[in-house]
Amino acid sequence: MEIAKALNPEQALRDAHPAALVGVKTFRDELTLVIDPAHIVTVAEFMRNTPGLLFNYLSDISAVDYYPEDTRPGRFGISYHIYSMLYNRRIRLKVFLQDEEPTVDTVTGVWSAANWLEREIYDMMGITFTGHPDLRRLLMPEDWDGHPHRRDYPLGYETVQFSFNAEDIMKHKPFAKE
């Protein structure tokens, strides 16, 4: 079987879907392609199926919350780390989402591995993935309020007990009964 020559992902995407590519960045040899959120599924399919690219393995989807800074195009960023077994390289697709009702299309149709990774982001960051087959909370209890990994969600710090305040805390601690 003839193996297609490896393509430059940036150039290939620029040629095929010029509207989808918003920006390009390289940091420590990691290529990041910033994608328009409306085109993420098209780009994902293109990256997975085009000979010369064949990013057939989804390593990770990570979401990051840029609250409260607003120098970036949106409050939330989602990074798709995709890997090509054949050409042994990894790139990052990145989308930025706005603060109000952050929504992006799901890529579960392209890589099944995205299923739980997107559920985790829905749970932890409150980003909705339209078209996801099973969008429920994953890690937190189903009746939980809020999305813990947002930067404006408190860590939930309880006062640490030292000898000077131990008695005071012990008075209020809700000890279990038999």
Partner: peptide, 22 residues
């Protein structure tokens, strides 16, 4: 996999671990 996003300061903005068991 470890995804690490700095802030320019001394603490990370976001860490995400892609773990095999998951």
């Amino acid at each position: 996999g470890c995804y690490l996003h700095g802030t320019g300061g001394n603490k990370p903005r976001r860490v995400h671990f892609k773990t095999p068991s998951f």
